[in-house]
Structure formats: structure tokens, C-alpha cells
Amino acid sequence: MSGTQKIGMFTYDVKNGLGLIDYNIDDHEFAHIIVDIKKCDECSHMMCVWGCPAQCYNFRDQGLKQMKFQYEDCIECGTCFIMCDQGAVSWNHPRGGFGITYSQG
């Protein structure tokens, strides 16, 4: 499984871009996004997968049978919360001092 997509003339891995951001990842018990992956089984559109700019959501597009979500790569944009209409995404900002820090913005 990889996030590499072939587009036109070149291949690109979104995780390269994420590697440039400063993360201070919080413990699992304080994860800022919690996904009820059982609900994802019934989902017909997987809009979180398509919308997330950080590839935190991996599912059938990657050949997986079950939703695999990781909050660690999240860039806190909120797209998944907007896209999910299955009531599976519980969204909040990370605790103070955790999450991403942009150096440019």
C-alpha cells in the first residue's frame, strides 16, 4: 500500500509534503479526531478519503476492507468533518501545544 499516485508525467507521494511540517503528536487517548470506523463500512462515498489533503484516511481506494485512520498526519483543516455525513467523525482541534506548527503559513 502506498499513497503514490501517478499523475501525468510524474509520481508524487503526499507524505513528502507532510514531512516538511512540524508535528508534536499527542498521545492516543487525546487524539483530536475520533473516527467510528464501523460506520464507514456502510458508507457509499468515502468523501473523507477523497477530501483529506493529508491522506489520513485509507480505505477501499487502497484495497483495504476496513477504514484505517490516523490522526498523526492531520493538518487540522477540518475537511473530513465537513465531508462525513455518516456521523462517524468526531472532530476537535488538538490540545494546546499539540498538532502541527507551520513555519511559513
Binding site: Q5, G8, Y12, V14, V49, W50, G51, C52, P53, T79
Partner: peptide, 20 residues
């Protein structure tokens, strides 16, 4: 525009296509 995003297209790929 999030509403217009079709299934099967990752937003980050849209950006890469723009860059290319």
C-alpha cells in the same frame, strides 16, 4: 469547492496536477 469533489479524486492529486 468541497461540494463539487467527485469520488475517486484526492484533493492533493488535484493540486499536483495544477503544479504539473
Amino acid at each position: 469547492q468541497l461540494k463539487s469533489l467527485p469520488e475517486g479524486l484526492h484533493t492533493y492529486d488535484l493540486y499536483q496536477a495544477f503544479k504539473a
